[in-house]
Design a protein around this nucleic acid. Structure first.
Lengths: 211, 211, 211, 211
DNA sequence: AATGAATGAGATTTCATTCAT
DNA sequence: CATGAATGAAATCTCATTCAT
């Protein structure tokens, strides 16, 4: 019989991860010391080690949390309305959050994770998954659209999905680098790309020309 | 009167940076110890500290080197042929290098720098510059193209330049995450986007010019 | 709520300072390594850094401790009996301790501090204080004695206090340099000086002659 | 046959010691690096090592130089006039130099040497000698004076000599600690002590001799 | 003799982690 | 479960000294 409830334990775990996120976002994984997390969380080192075996495990838990939450965010956006406009909602979900301060905190950690993925296989797996999962979802949406003739046959839905996510990731970086960054003008370009891909009369012609 | 020539000193400096690049690419900045760089360079700690005041300064020198070299690469691509196809050459310069092993080494360090830029102002400045410089160059090309009517008036050249670079950065990440990554399918999407920007009528012309 | 009592922490701090004193006395501040203090104290490096931010801070704490304890020693001597003989007690307190082995350990560190005071402002402040404090005390005793006519009016009590302390400091050095040093013969000279300063009949004549 | 003259070598050696004195006086022996001396002297490390085997040897050479020069200074003072007033000249030689800026530079190094003597036998030997030599000279003067009846038979000339030097050393320290230090008031006390040593009756005679 | 780049042992300090309470 | 003092391996950096030129 546990002395404290499962809920208590889970909420403590969340507290630690919240504190860690703040620290990681501010100082990066490597410059963040366990003492920083101790201070930020208000707990003791020993307490933290009751919930996580190591600092590495906290990083991984953060990566995991990111992956889960981002996946959920995307699925929510997709399911929030009619299939035909799902891509627009996905676009807005991504671009819209670029200026959300709380979300930016998390994005900063995501950028750290991209770097960390290079040398940490566990992180790499999670980072891959948080790329593959949305890619797959978008890809499936595009396959479906193509089947319905809404997207030109010459388009590779997998590639387009990757391409779109590449844009998102690239804009996340730009958001960090540029204090006056605005996602607005990119919306139009995003749509331009999607329209080009859709099987409008012109689009088809373009495709023909391309060959 | 220096005991050894300026060239000798400069080449020693390069040697150290080369060694550091290998280490950083393999282990990241923070996991790389000075001893690692010592081993990789074949020099002694003291020797390295004759060229760089601190490990931080090595990281900054790497960032600086990256910024300089990437800028040069881009300018070379632009100036390598007729203006009309410059964008295609830029596209190829970027996408083509994604599989170049030596270049990948450097890309890995670039990703590290993106993360490091978040908490190191010097790095941030350099990273910003290595984004702003190509963005400006591409932007200017697009402005010129728009003036000539090769690009639809509704397009914001600045935004499009940012957008294109976002794609490149995003694909750099995907290249890292996916061992079987191929840039090929993205070329077509890149062109699709450019053609969409030219407006339907001119698209054909653009292609014609390209050949 | 602290896990261990304030007293425990304070006594640990004292332990470290005691160990440091032994090392500093033996090897000097600069030849003493943190490892030496680690060995002498039986603690770990980390433990020591929990109590002191740096080696410098240990040196300063030692200087502070010296200043405090010496001040106390002197005040105790002064207050130990009738005022008339206070100067004798001060004299004995100083000269008597010159051969006390434990005290010699501390004197050696004091000499180090005199040297260190030249380039470390914090140390300088503390060293100054451990000179100024006794000087003031002795000076006040002499002013009082002069008021009562026990000391010739021609004597400058401030100067005499400085002079007496100069003798003490000089003898501390000689004690270090000479293994067979004895403070005994200096007691008589010390008294001779004090008697000369007192308004005895002869003293008055001497004063007259002096002019 | 040496390639360069002995004078050249000696003057280079002096240059190095002068540079070292400046550094040592400013930063202390331990904080002074060979690079500091290199910079201050305008020579190269290799050059300096042609004249001194080690940094330690430079410190010892400085100590030696100090000992020699101070000894000479004292002998000069003694021999500068009639024996009867030699002590006054010695007193003035010491007290008078306390405010000489160039001399202060050297005093600072002397204080360093006092500390260094504690753990360096060579330095200790030299420091002892630079105490013993003047002590002996003064002692001999006092013995002679006693023989002539100019000093009371109850006085121990050896102790008085030590005592006087203790005062000098103590005042050297005070000079360092107190920016507004003046040696003037101590002259009178010095004389008071000497007069007290002559015994009441002879005091007048001493004065007479003095004039 | 002079140069100064290179050496490398060793110093200080940090910090993830443990464990007695 | 929580605490937080203690641990100690390991990191960065320094600097006296050397030696090829």
């Amino acid at each position: 019989m546990p002395k404290v409830s499962k809920e208590y334990l889970a909420s403590r775990r969340e507290e630690i991860l919240d504190a860690a996120l703040v620290c990681f976002s501010r100082d990066g994984f490597h410059r963040t010391t366990m003492q920083d997390i101790v201070r930020e969380s208000g707990l003791s080192p020993g307490a933290i080690y009751n919930y996580f075996k190591s600092k590495e495990e906290i990083v991984e838990a953060i990566a995991n949390q990111r992956q889960t939450k981002e996946g959920q965010l995307l699925r929510d956006a997709v399911e929030a309305g009619p299939a035909g406009t799902a891509l627009q909602r996905v676009r807005d979900a991504f671009l819209g959050e670029l200026n959300n301060p709380k979300e930016r905190l998390r994005r900063r950690v995501s950028v750290q994770l991209w770097a960390e993925a290079q040398r940490n296989p566990s992180i790499r797996r999670l980072v891959r998954r948080s790329f593959e999962q949305p890619r797959k979802l978008i890809s499936e949406m595009l396959w479906a659209a193509q089947k319905e003739g809404a997207i030109a046959g010459s388009i590779d839905p997998d590639a387009l999905a990757s391409f779109l996510i590449a844009v998102f990731h690239g804009l996340v970086l730009q958001r960090e680098w540029n204090d006056r960054f605005s996602a607005e003008p990119h919306k139009a370009l995003f749509d331009l790309l999607l329209q080009a891909a859709t099987g409008s009369a012109n689009a088809a012609e373009l495709e023909v020309v391309e060959r």
